[in-house]
Write a protein that binds this DNA or RNA. Structure first.
Lengths: 330, 330
DNA sequence: TTGTAAGCGTTATCAC
DNA sequence: GTGATAACGCTTACAA
């Protein structure tokens, strides 16, 4: 059985296709009774408009493309949740185009694939706008950047500098030596995220402001194994009691494990401040920075929706601030 | 500047739109010289066909929808990699529709969103076909199931029973007591995956076959915290030396941490067999089961592509077998 | 081998 | 208010 079309609906309701279209798009000029008639026919036939046809006819397809790095991180799940729920309210669908690696990105940019045929585009973490400029890729459609910032584009991003500063101010008031573990920035120019250097900058600025200094700094890449190794290295050399700012909960968790393995008491021998407030952080009593990620996603969606709704004003930047959650470990 | 259309290309090449379309779709009946002319015009104009228009005109949109659970697991990244690379070879785009929770799923099923307007559909992990039947959702388009199995649909799935069996056969030959940690199955009927019970079934069958029995069994949900807790509980009560089958590397990793914290030597006091072969498993010397996930994704894509290519035969099921990688921990 | 024209399912622009 | 009808960008007969 063929999918019902707008023609079928019109025929069944005994009206013209134009009227059906008006009902579909909430064009006020439809009489109440007629509207009911059409709605009934739509229900009877279980009709849904074809988004491709809508799009091609110059209307909206009610689809948003999200260019998303595929990384196994809670962060993106939460972000997606925020984006999705906001778009859903506005009856938009969200399609994700995975950015698995650089070559995939090139492909998306090189061709004007379906990702660029949606009503709007959400670009996450990676700031591709510079590429759009360089390559003269005419990205006509409304775009919003999330977890990234650029001039002239609507953005919603986390203020990681403030997050780092909050950690630094808190740590500065704690007794004992100060240590920090930073996350290594990736080499690839394009696929670089600046969040970790921002956290670092904020933390150092806070220490400086309070006249304290780090006894030593450590660096690790963002994976479980590196986290374990750096935890071991740090505790091998640390002078207790001490306070450690682990610039990601992944790092903090490994440090807690290692400390426990050595019979040390977190919050006394080793104070630990994480960053992210992962789902397990509360249960382990980790003092850490919570980021309003869902809100950021929600707001990003609103920015884009306002553009789709006709907003033509200047680019807006929405900054979100992490806040410190003090628990047992520091 | 407007996006160039097929009309523009035709005009520039001095041919009809039909000819351009033929070139675009590799319809053999185009003279070499004409083809070159068209190709040149396409290049000059930087033209790319509009997938919406293609789709609506009854052709292909060259887009595949993937219904994917959004879980922060390496497994899905690898799977996506396999799917994407295969589809890319065939010049198809992949759009992901995230299944964040049950309500999202309902929505996708209830309306005929863009997800169902692609050339083909890949459904991952969750077997939704039964829903399609129950609700009389006419899913006309070619579909393939990955990491799931159902009658009458092309499937590519991992043989977790065999994986469990391999672990069991290996463990049965090891000295000392035998323990196992299982992963709790979620309650939601729909969002249930059977992989963990399959691993369990295979393992138990192997033990039974060799006349050995488990000294005790433990259960944990699939998260870092639960993994730590169950590791503690197990080592509190375990009689050493022993062998533990942790039915997911997440569990095995936590056990290794806990063992080390207690000064135990993995591979001697506590032998550990994991399941998944996570990226860090090799570095930690974890004996575990490796799953050919990328291959599974690749094959799933091939199954779907063959349907798109006109294959009308019966449904095919492709089974993939994990294999044991023996390293230091067991 | 190639051009022309009729769809495909919508929206938007007209008249009425 | 509402019904025709012309786009939209493409594929695919059908002619030539």
């Amino acid at each position: 059985m063929r999918k019902p079309t707008i023609q079928d609906v019109a025929r069944r309701a005994g009206v013209g296709v134009g009227t059906v279209s008006r009902v579909l798009n909430n064009h006020a000029a439809v009489k109440g009774a007629t509207r009911e008639l059409v709605l009934q026919a739509i229900a009877d036939l279980d009709y849904t408009p074809n988004p491709h046809a809508r799009r091609i006819a110059g209307g909206k397809s009610y689809t948003i493309s999200v260019l998303l790095p595929v990384v196994t991180t809670e962060f993106y799940v939460r972000l997606l949740d925020g984006l999705e729920s906001a778009f859903q309210e506005a009856r938009y669908d969200v399609a994700i185009f995975p950015l698995l690696d650089r070559s995939r990105l090139e492909r998306y940019l090189g061709s004007h694939t379906l990702a660029y045929q949606a009503d709007g585009l959400v670009m996450v973490t990676y700031n591709l706008t510079q590429l759009f400029n360089e390559r003269r890729l005419r990205n006509q459609q409304p775009t919003v950047l999330v977890d990234a910032y650029a001039e002239g584009v609507d953005c919603a991003f986390m203020d990681n500098v403030t997050g780092g500063r909050l950690a630094g101010e808190y740590a500065a008031r704690l007794p004992g030596e100060l240590y920090a573990i930073w996350v290594e920035t990736e080499l690839d120019q394009l696929f670089t995220t600046r969040v970790f250097e921002e956290r670092r900058a904020g933390f150092r600025a806070a220490l400086q402001g309070s006249g304290r200094t780090l006894r030593a700094e450590f660096t690790a890449s963002f994976d479980a194994l590196a986290a374990r190794n750096v935890a071991t290295a740090l505790l091998d050399e640390a002078q207790l009691p001490c306070t450690v700012f682990a610039s990601a909960d992944l790092l903090a968790g490994a440090l807690l494990d290692e400390a426990r393995g050595r019979g040390l008491t977190p919050g006394e021998d080793v104070r630990v401040i994480g960053f992210d407030d992962q789902p397990w952080a509360a249960a382990r009593g980790l003092t850490t920075l919570h980021q309003p990620v869902e809100q950021m996603g929600h707001e990003a969606a609103q920015l884009l929706l306002s553009r789709l709704g006709g907003y033509r004003g200047p680019a807006r930047a929405r900054r979100f601030e992490p806040h410190l959650i003090v628990r047992d470990t520091a």
